[in-house]
Simulated assay, not measured.
Amino acid sequence: MSTHKAWVVAVANQKGGVAKTTTVGSLGSAFAEQGLSVLLVDLDPQACLTFSLGIDPESVEGSVHQVLLGEVKAADVVVPTEDGVDLLPATIELATAEQLLLMRTGREQLLKTALAPLLKRYDVIMLDCPPSLGVLTTVALTAAHGVLIPLQCETLSHRGVGQLLDTIHDVKRMTNRRLKVIGVLPTLFDGRTSHGRLVLERIGEDYGVTVWEPAIPKSVRFAEAPAAGRSILATARSSKGADAYREVAGSLLSARG
């Protein structure tokens, strides 16, 4: 990459079940396949990203929770994974972070400050946001250069996009003027129906954001991967889903420059 500092990407959508964590793990692995050094940050108290990369959330000695509270340095709790990416893991403790951080002055800047020493160590840092628009998502958006929005290709799924874009606008105005909307990544796409394509067309028209292709197909392979503690790029290397994420990763890097 042309920059000497990491490209920090928040992957956010306040709606659950849109393949957000799958997108973080799969794109991270795709970037790593291209020879980039990658750090994934799990900001979801459910710790799904941590689990899906083969790390037991109950066995980690330190997590992003302690990092946000200033108890440990991020570099001291980063762990390697078999997918070739590093992970800043989450635990259930993160569920209390929202309330604790509300009392902190400058709370929006805490993750940005914590990650600053790692920016020259990695090419890409991806932030897996929780399915909400609370403090943890705001903290991630403040730390990021851009935000990618995974979106299930169904009518009801896109109704919250406007609300998320409003939050992004507020963050740009208040805490992170450089934040950009990278675009929407269609997920759980069923190519047998025209409904999904119509939804995608409406997203681009209604919100004026880039819609990245190819759409990520709906596949049981994605459900199988976390049980193996790997991404789909390792468990089903030649699957359509793995190839789609590789193609999107390449397109994102080309657009980034």
Score class of each variant (00 low, 15 high):
151 L>F: 01
151 L>Q: 02
152 Q>V: 07
153 C>W: 05
153 C>T: 15
154 E>S: 15
154 E>K: 10
155 T>N: 08
156 L>S: 12
157 S>D: 05
160 G>K: 01
160 G>V: 11
160 G>F: 10
160 G>Q: 05
160 G>H: 09
162 G>W: 13
163 Q>L: 15
163 Q>N: 13
163 Q>M: 14
163 Q>K: 15
167 T>K: 04
170 D>Q: 12
170 D>H: 10
171 V>P: 00
172 K>W: 10
172 K>S: 13
172 K>F: 11
173 R>V: 13
173 R>C: 09
174 M>H: 03
177 R>S: 15
177 R>Q: 12
177 R>G: 12
178 R>G: 15
179 L>A: 05
179 L>W: 02
180 K>N: 09
181 V>L: 03
181 V>H: 00
181 V>Q: 06
183 G>R: 03
183 G>I: 06
185 L>Q: 02
186 P>G: 14
186 P>S: 13
187 T>L: 11
187 T>M: 09
188 L>N: 00
188 L>I: 09
188 L>S: 00
189 F>E: 00
190 D>C: 04
190 D>H: 02
190 D>Q: 01
192 R>T: 14
193 T>P: 05
193 T>F: 09
193 T>G: 08
194 S>I: 12
197 R>N: 01
197 R>P: 05
199 V>G: 04
199 V>S: 08
201 E>W: 06
201 E>M: 08
204 G>I: 07
204 G>R: 02
205 E>K: 14
205 E>D: 15
205 E>L: 12
205 E>I: 08
206 D>Q: 13
206 D>G: 01
206 D>N: 09
208 G>F: 11
209 V>K: 04
209 V>P: 07
209 V>W: 09
209 V>C: 11
211 V>G: 05
211 V>T: 04
211 V>M: 06
213 E>C: 04
213 E>W: 01
213 E>D: 13
214 P>K: 14
214 P>A: 14
215 A>Y: 08
216 I>M: 14
216 I>T: 07
217 P>L: 00
217 P>G: 01
219 S>T: 15
220 V>S: 00
221 R>F: 08
221 R>H: 12
221 R>E: 06
221 R>G: 00
221 R>V: 00
221 R>C: 05
222 F>N: 02
222 F>R: 02
222 F>W: 08
223 A>R: 10
223 A>F: 11
223 A>E: 14
